[in-house]
Amino acid sequence: MTTQIVECVLKEAEKHEAKRVSEVHLVIGKITFLNPEQARFWYEVLTKDTIMEGSKLYIEEKSGLVRCSKCCYEGGFKYEDDPIYHFPAPTLSCPKCGGIVEVVGGRDCLIKRVKLVL
């Protein structure tokens, strides 16, 4: 995924004939399978020797959003609070009425903004 992010930014930079990329701003959903720590590591590796080398990577995490068709609740997930989890596990239960919710947000893997030096 980080490869795709870097490729996408490089393509955009090329389009504008930029000399350098100075900033990349990502929005990553809470339930997207991208660990910011690992993304940062690969970002550094993948941008080496490119015009993105040394650019600042900003990662904003976006919380999940669910909607309940029964009680019309719209908001965050109900999390499983079992102590065995070191990572809160979201569920498809409505935190308000216990009904079944649909996931409507939090799956983002968005390159929101880039700063190019021309």
Binding site: I5, E12, I111, L118
Partner: peptide, 13 residues
Amino acid sequence: GEVYDIELEADIL
């Protein structure tokens, strides 16, 4: 040398 700030809004997924 001008800095171009682009709202890219490109979602990889």
